[in-house]
C-alpha cells in the first residue's frame, strides 16, 4: 500500500514518543510500504525534529513557516488538505492536537475518519477492520472502515507497540516553499499564548516511587492514608483527574494525558480505575502495582501486580507492614 502518511507531533526539537507507534501501526497496515512522516513547525526545532524523524521514517516531509511555530490546526488543516494526495491514509496520535485537526481534515480530504483506534485486525476488500473502545472503555467494538477514498486514522497513544527497528537514513523533503504557493490561509483562529499549568511544590515527573490516588479514596480527609503510606515508602503522592477536579490535590500532582507523564520505578495505583487518559501518563512507569476494590478495573490490565481491596481498609495495613519492614 502506497500513500501512507504519519503526522508527527514534536516538541523542543524531538518527535513525540508516538512517532514510533505510528510507524509500527503503518507497518501493520502495509509491511512493505515506505510511510512518509509529516512534521510542521518552524525554525531549528523543526529541523532537529525532522532529523530525528528521518531515523525512523524513510521519507520526511517538512512544512516550515513562522505561522506554524505554534500548533494551529486552523492553519495546518488546509495546508495538509493540499499536500496529502487523494486516497492516502494518514495516521496520527489521538491527542489534543489531533482532536482539533483530524475530523475536519478528513472532510477536507474527502477521506473516511477512524478516531482513537486501539488495534487493527486486518484489511479485507478495501476495508480496514479495527478495534475502538466505547462507553469510557467499558466495552470494545470492532469497526470497519472504507478505505476507498483514503482515510484519516487517529491511534490511541500507547496502544500500538513501537517496534524494534534499525535506524534508517530517511530523506527529508522541504515542502514549505513548494506547497505554500497558495499562500497562508486566513487565520480565523489566532494563537495568543499558552498558559502553563500551575507548578507545584513537588515534581512528580522526577519521582522514583509514586503512590497515586484515585476516586476510590472517597473523601478528602482519607488522603491522609495515602500520605502516610507515601511517607513510609519515601515516595511522592500523585493522583488521577477526579481528585484534581474535586480540588483535593493540586493540578501538578495529576498523572495522565491532561496532567503529567511520569516515569517512576514503582507506581502504586490506589483506587484508580485506569481510564485511558490516566494510563496515557503512565507510559514511562516500569512497575505498576494496582490496588482497587473492583476486580474488573482496567488498571489491572496495565499493572504488573494487583490487589483487590478497598484502599480505605487496606492502606493502613500496608503502611504498617511497610514501616515494620524498614
Amino acid at each position: 500500500m502506497d500513500n501512507l502518511f504519519a503526522y508527527i507531533m514534536h516538541r523542543e526539537g524531538a518527535p513525540h514518543d508516538s512517532a514510533a507507534e505510528l510507524l509500527a501501526a503503518a507497518r501493520q497496515l502495509a509491511p512493505q510500504a515506505a510511510p512518509v512522516a509529516i512534521l510542521a513547525g518552524h525554525g531549528p526545532e523543526l529541523d532537529a525534529a525532522c532529523q530525528q524523524a528521518a531515523a525512523l521514517f524513510p521519507q520526511v516531509w517538512k512544512i516550515g513557516h513562522p505561522y506554524l511555530a505554534q500548533p494551529n490546526a486552523e492553519i495546518l488543516r488546509p495546508l495538509l488538505a493540499r499536500l496529502v494526495p487523494q486516497g492516502a491514509l494518514l495516521l496520527l496520535a489521538h491527542e489534543h492536537f489531533a482532536m482539533d485537526l483530524a475530523p475536519g481534515l478528513s472532510v477536507k480530504l474527502g477521506a473516511a475518519y477512524l478516531p482513537d483506534a486501539v488495534a487493527f485486525t486486518g484489511i479485507e476488500g478495501g476495508r480496514l477492520k479495527a478495534v475502538r473502545e466505547e462507553f469510557a472503555g467499558l466495552v470494545s467494538a470492532h469497526v470497519s472502515l472504507d478505505l476507498s477514498a483514503g482515510a484519516v486514522i487517529s491511534l490511541r497513544p500507547g496502544a500500538f507497540k513501537a517496534g524494534e527497528a534499525a535506524p534508517v537514513q530517511g530523506q527529508i523533503s522541504d515542502k514549505s516553499a513548494a506547497d505554500l504557493d497558495g499562500g497562508m490561509p486566513p487565520a480565523r483562529r489566532r494563537y495568543i499564548e499558552t498558559v502553563a499549568a500551575e507548578a507545584g511544590e513537588v515534581d512528580i515527573t522526577k519521582a522514583e516511587v509514586l503512590v497515586s490516588v484515585g476516586r476510590g479514596i472517597q473523601d478528602q480527609d482519607n488522603l491522609e492514608l495515602v500520605f502516610d503510606l507515601a511517607k513510609a515508602l519515601g515516595a511522592e503522592v500523585s493522583c488521577s483527574r477526579p481528585i484534581v477536579d474535586a480540588k483535593w490535590l493540586p493540578k501538578p500532582r495529576q498523572v495522565g494525558t491532561s496532567g503529567k507523564t511520569v516515569k517512576p520505578k514503582v507506581y502504586l495505583a490506589c483506587g484508580i480505575s485506569g481510564s485511558s487518559q490516566h494510563l496515557g501518563g503512565l507510559t514511562g512507569a516500569s512497575c505498576v502495582i494496582a490496588i482497587n476494590k473492583h476486580p474488573k478495573a482496567p488498571i489491572f490490565q496495565r499493572a504488573e501486580v494487583g490487589v483487590v481491596a478497598d484502599i480505605i481498609q487496606f492502606l493502613p495495613v500496608l503502611t504498617k507492614a511497610v514501616r515494620a519492614a524498614k
Binding site: Q218, N222, E224
Partner: peptide
Amino acid sequence: EDAIKTSGLE
C-alpha cells in the same frame, strides 16, 4: 467507621 480509620484510634 471512616472517622476511626483517620483518627489514629484504629
